[in-house]
């Protein structure tokens, strides 16, 4: 399988003493869900800013389908922990924003986004304002907006960490479900080991200060995954391996 996105030997530092990322290489294949797992402040968000083209690395490059997109915003879509829905736009107009920014007429953009509301489980919320939706529903709308921005690659920065445990489990199931249909190639950041194993095809362990890739773990559990995957021995084996790595590497 060919690489869809390739991050090649990226380094970044604010100054001599604060090296944030050191020779980080990450790949993402078509339709894959890859996770960056590591502690907070470990440079994960900086890496995302670099992939999204918002920050230029000191060294290294970002390739999308072989094309160098280092420092170019607007190529891969980005979703943050907070849903970032604009409170003064209706849900449909929020979701349509990436299309409108690309120059689609408002009416046409609304028509296009309308087709996805059912698939993302937020049908009926089109004309509502974000404040009228629950946290989980807002996160769904934010993911739809992310998807509409770029169907190629999505970067999700701790997408579910602001939700309570029950909503989170619910969102995991929903997320895997939606992904089965839309096959959006995704890199997501988390510090939650269970979440990483539950959702990913591959996990990169990112150590902090300086941020380096310490290990790459392939989760070979087929998709769609069993509903009780997180209660199986296989799951625990992965989890134990990650915990051992984290302790061994003092991540």
């Amino acid at each position: 399988m060919s690489e869809l996105l390739e991050v090649r030997d990226v380094s970044f530092s604010y100054n001599e003493s604060a090296v944030i990322l050191k020779d980080v290489s990450v790949t993402l294949r078509e339709g894959e869900i890859v996770c960056l797992l590591g502690v907070s402040g470990g440079g994960k968000t900086t890496l995302f800013n670099i992939i999204a083209g918002l920050v230029r690395p000191d060294k290294g490059s970002v390739l999308l389908n072989g094309e160098d997109i280092t420092g170019q915003p607007g190529r891969v879509s980005y979703m943050l922990q907070k849903d970032m829905l604009l409170p003064y736009r209706t849900v449909e107009d929020n979701v349509a924003l990436p299309l409108i920014i690309k120059g689609t007429k408002k009416k046409e953009a609304r028509r296009i986004v309308g087709g996805y509301f059912r698939q993302f489980g937020i049908d009926g919320s089109q004309k509502k304002y974000p404040a009228e939706l629950s946290g989980g529903m807002r996160q769904r709308a934010a993911l739809l907006r992310t998807y509409l921005f770029s169907a190629d690659v999505a970067l999700l920065d701790e997408p579910f960490s602001a939700l309570d445990a029950i909503t989170k489990a619910d969102m995991h199931r929903w997320y895997l479900d939606v992904m089965e249909n839309i096959r959006l190639s995704t890199i997501f950041i988390t510090h939650d080991i269970d979440e990483a194993v539950m959702l990913s095809d591959r996990i990169y362990l990112l150590g902090g200060r300086p941020g380096e890739i310490k290990d790459e773990i392939v989760i070979s559990e087929p998709k769609p995954r069993r509903a009780d995957f997180n209660l199986t021995d296989d799951f625990l084996v992965y989890k134990r391996r990650i915990i051992t790595q984290i302790q061994g590497n003092k991540i």
Partner: peptide, 21 residues
């Protein structure tokens, strides 16, 4: 909100669009 501006920029929004939206 700085993150909102960051999100808009990641979508490739121009300065004018960030102002407007």
């Amino acid at each position: 909100d700085a993150d909102t501006v960051r999100l808009m920029r990641s979508m490739g929004a121009s300065r004018m669009q960030i102002f407007r939206y």
